[in-house]
Amino acid sequence: MTIVLGIESSCDETGVGIVRLDDDGTKTLLADQVASSVELHARFGGVVPEVASRAHLEAMVPAVRRAFAESGLRMSDVDAIAVTCGPGLAGALLVGVAAAKAYALALDVPLYGANHLAGHVAADTLEHGRLPSPCLALLVSGGHSQLLKVDDLATSITELGSTIDDAAGEAYDKVARLLDLPYPGGPPIDKAAQQGDPAAIAFPRGLTGPRDARYDFSFSGLKTAVARWVEAEERAARPIPVNDVAAGFQEAVADVLTLKALRAAEDHGIDTLVISGGVAANSRIKSLAGERCAKAGLRLRFPRPRLCTDNGAMIAALGAHLVEAGVKPSSLELPSNPALPVNVVSV
């Protein structure tokens, strides 16, 4: 039995999780503490790196204390520490990495510098067990939009495609602003979209032409198309049908994401799709992925919404995979790397 402490601070959530790895490979979540600074960023319409970093410093040790209290474990029970060392915001990552090193030194346990994106995939194993090899992972959030082929969560992840401009969540935030909906834009657009007609306005599906990259995404053109449409209506002094705009936009996002994910699965003969990241909680992405996967005979897995957003539990889960796979721990000189490539699962 191995107890893994996971620390995450790549964006605006300070996450600390504890996972128990049993000898049979079972991974059990024992603590999941998250302190979010999202409200501090709301009036800026996006995450302000310095504000996020300050919040991480304040929240880090209290979050670790709460995680131990939640788990009922003592610090001396910890056998390994995993920490997000990238990708993410430089100043934010550094707080978590520095804290993790200090705990690793003090507790005399191995440290694993772990990839945030692999962590999002690992989150699903806490609920639904081991992932088949290979499987396909679609990560969608304010910071990432990626299609990954996962042969082994601990050692072998390949990026098939990613966004060439905005992340899906970023497009949600920008469109929310256009429609005078609050930040972050995901939940309010989802809510408005459920009252609207997704076919009322046809917005473009980026990068879906026959000569476009098969697995890459682009949401910048969609965002501009929504802005043009809204401005034209404003010029004509017509009221903006917020629900229909939200529904049309959301349909375009969900359509492209699921279309490319299914295409990748088919091309690579993969039978399981995992969708994770903050935007994975979106109702239309869920339902459309469900319909299309059922039709194509694919197994579809989603972590529960709480584990889709950034958290320490997913990093502890990834740490448990790294321990289980016998991956070499990181040195205490471990740097944080804001641009860590997704194929580097641990540093």
Partner: peptide
Amino acid sequence: PFTGLRAGMVTAAALGHAV
């Protein structure tokens, strides 16, 4: 300057907590 300063402070806070 903020980024470097935080490295020392979170390290000290975590070490103090751990021991």
